[in-house]
């Protein structure tokens, strides 16, 4: 199954958005005919797509459709899964990330990840954010202080914790912990942030804060978010990709997907008729 965003956007332009100028930038991530197996189970069945820079792309689809597997390809998180094998090419900024000489640690500086459940380290708030920087070998405390403050501000957490930086991160609320994890990701200054259902364990107010944050962050980062919340996908993403049974069924601008999806399966899924 090959779906090119460029093709789809142009299709959108011709078919439904005639007056809208289309500006397809050079892809941040380019995926070519990628297949993934866990043992003999084919989880991803030959997907090609391009992810636009400085945008939010939402991956939607029923459980088991392959969207999280696909997301985890971008920072090679699947490498450690038993029986994982893949074929195809995934390029970030034009470079194949599955080449042998690629250092996974280097790749993950570039591609940060936020998970479903907030997973702060059992350390202080400060140490959590500084952790990645120290791993990178940064030892100058002044530099670390500046980066920690910057990251906490970007994650909209600074005002709430600036006087308690030594407090254990585990004492924070769930929503604060998730923003701390985002700050920890931002501190190492990646260009891509992967989010795997980042708000599914949070209350509506914390969810709204994270969504506002995502909206603000796309100016500097390329964000990909896996979500089961259709309204969240429609609220925050610029592009939406619908996965089903390991295939990319439809990939287009979010406003097209949620107003006039081209495929019946997409319409049935987003209107809650299956999945």
């Amino acid at each position: 199954m090959e779906v090119s965003i460029e093709k789809d956007i142009i299709m959108t332009s011709e078919n439904t958005e005639k007056n809208e100028s289309v500006n397809v930038q050079k892809a941040k991530i380019s995926v070519k005919n990628t297949k993934v197996w866990y043992g003999d189970f084919e989880a991803i069945k030959g997907i090609s797509m391009e992810i636009q820079p400085n945008s939010v792309t939402a991956f939607i689809g029923p459980s088991g459709c392959g969207k999280s597997t696909f997301l985890r390809l971008f920072n090679r998180m699947n490498d450690y899964v038993d029986g994982f094998s893949m074929e195809g090419k995934i390029k970030i900024d034009g470079a194949n990330i599955y080449k042998k000489k690629v250092h996974v640690e280097e790749l993950r500086k570039e591609v940060g990840m936020v998970f479903q459940k907030p997973n702060p380290f059992p350390k202080s708030i400060y140490e959590n954010v500084a952790y990645g920087l120290k791993i990178q070998g940064i030892t100058d405390k002044k530099v670390i202080d500046v980066r920690v403050e910057k990251a906490l501000k970007q994650a909209d957490l600074w005002e709430e914790v600036k006087n308690d930086l030594k407090k254990s991160a585990l004492a924070l609320s769930g929503g604060q912990q998730q923003r701390l994890c985002i700050a920890r990701t931002l501190a190492v200054e990646p260009s891509i942030i992967l989010m795997d259902e980042p708000t599914s364990a949070l209350d509506p107010i914390s969810t709204a804060k994270i969504e506002d944050l995502i909206f603000g962050l796309k100016e500097k980062y390329t964000i990909i978010i896996v979500t089961h919340n259709m309204q969240q996908a429609s609220r925050i993403s610029d592009y939406t990709a619908f996965f089903y049974l390991g295939e990319l069924v439809e990939y287009n601008k979010t406003k097209s997907i949620f107003t006039k999806p081209e495929k019946k399966r997409t319409e049935n899924y987003i209107t809650g008729r299956f999945g």
């Binding site: 259709m230 309204q231 429609s234 949620f258 107003t259 006039k260 999806p261 319409e267 987003i270 209107t271």
Partner: peptide, 9 residues
């Protein structure tokens, strides 16, 4: 029911 697509139309 926050309808989308055909349901919203």
């Amino acid at each position: 029911y926050t309808p989308v697509a055909k349901d919203l139309r």
